[in-house]
Design a protein around this nucleic acid. Structure first.
Lengths: 256, 256
DNA sequence: TCAAAAGTGTTGCTAGTACACCCATGT
DNA sequence: ACATGGGTGTACTAGCAACACTTTTGA
């Protein structure tokens, strides 16, 4: 399943036109957990596949023999989101022996791909994409408002879903998301990566609410503010006048 | 290079006799950083290859299509150390595009393998083992005294080397060790894994010295003791009379 | 009795938390 | 003036580090 989606990705791009299995590492894929933040909720970008009913999956792809795995992840993300220089982190490799598509799904893939191009997607290719795969998980942090997701040939649509309300994803992708979430929580405090999820400028309250969404727990405003300001990584800009009948909050910007 | 060593491993075992590339995932390997502790020093088990002069490498291997990557790592470790139930943790995947053997080393491998068995190690196999590989790094913590390293056909010997005094290893293996060391440091405090490096019973001083070796920094005895005892994971046993003219230290055991 | 090192107690610092209070803003 | 929420100051607490001290052991 990891695989089928990757084919979709390829179809979006120049690479699609010359997709040849011999250019890629076999049995190894990359899956991306793309985190975004909106409406006080942590979101993940997932794609609805058109092969069958209710098939959801993480964006993923394969690794060219001529690129590093980090480059492959960047490329896959660029194809998906149109964005360069995305914050990206490898967090775990998944290699259960059962990471292989079952015969039912294999038939779906076969007919789906054949319908698209029976010449290119011959038996060899079908075998290639439906075999046993190990995947390397990356998570990405993006400003959700900057992303314009690219829809592929075998997808109905891409959707930002709240991490708490994800549907059943193909394969072990739910587990991969859970693992990415855990890695994000840990790194959010150690490295200062949360700001990648926010727009250029933001209020302290927005930072707090982001942290609350990621950790699923509340923080007190003043102590949180002291802690974040104490890190000395924010520049204070002007004030943000919202029209609300209260004191205007400061806007901040992440020091780079 | 990752690969050649794995062939060596295979030769040690039942698997050697039936080593067939089609049973393994291509272009994907596992490399193990096996940590041990002795003489107040953190050590790593590395192998001296007999292919060329001064070739050192990390123990590694391939992944059978019928096993998970975690199982593969356990199997590789068991082959190497004879031990079951080793503490093992996946820490990172390495996938630089330059992870491929150069032509000079390729010739060394070719002649070395051919000398051993020119029928089994035909061109196809040589191509397989010398191609571009992604590797998944695992680190293991063992009681150094329990390990009896198994020497393979293409190795001169295995050696415990102090992590500070490692020779140049093949490929990016030095970088892999550094990354494993960093992961160990982080996990040593978060999870309570350090005791895997010690014998069944130990004194508090030994624990302290282990932590000092891993972190390469000194701790004060009494504060360290208070901290560790505060974790409430140790059982205090009897005293250890060494014959030294000082108060006998307590022996401890990790609560399981 | 002494040297060496084990083990414990005391103090002070710092980081984080809880609470209280004042300030700007638009109605 | 007042309701609303922004922002800051103060007191309390827990965990850690530095230091001093007592205890055990064998020569």
């Amino acid at each position: 399943m990891v695989l089928t989606l990757s084919i979709v990705v390829c179809m979006n791009t120049r690479i699609m036109d010359k997709f040849q299995i011999e250019n890629y590492i076999a049995q190894l894929s990359i899956d991306c957990v793309i985190f975004g933040y909106k409406d006080k909720q942590l979101k993940v970008l997932i794609s609805k596949l058109s092969f069958g009913d209710n098939l959801w999956s993480l964006p993923g792809g394969y690794i060219l023999n001529t690129e590093s795995i980090d480059d492959a992840a960047s490329r896959i993300l660029k194809d998906r989101t149109g964005l360069d220089n995305i914050y990206l982190e490898q967090f775990k490799a998944f290699g259960g022996k059962d990471r292989i598509v079952d015969s039912e799904y294999r038939d779906l893939v076969r007919s789906g791909l054949r319908k698209f191009d029976s010449e290119r997607f011959n038996d060899e290719v079908i075998d290639w994409v439906t075999g046993r795969f190990v995947c390397i998980g990356y998570y990405a942090l993006v400003d959700l408002n900057k992303v314009e997701p690219k829809i592929g040939e075998f997808e109905e649509f891409l959707k930002w879903k709240c991490i708490e309300e994800l549907p059943k994803l193909t394969h072990d992708h739910n587990e991969i998301v859970a693992s990415a979430h855990q890695a994000l929580r840990q790194n959010l405090d150690e490295k200062l990566i949360g700001f990648n999820l926010l727009p250029e400028t933001f209020t302290m309250r927005e930072v707090k609410e982001l942290y609350e969404a990621v950790h699923d727990k509340e923080f007190s405003m003043n102590n949180f503010q002291k802690k974040i300001l104490g890190l000395n990584v924010l520049d204070r800009l002007g004030k943000k006048f919202t029209g609300a009948q209260n004191r205007a909050p400061f806007l901040y910007k992440f020091k780079k």
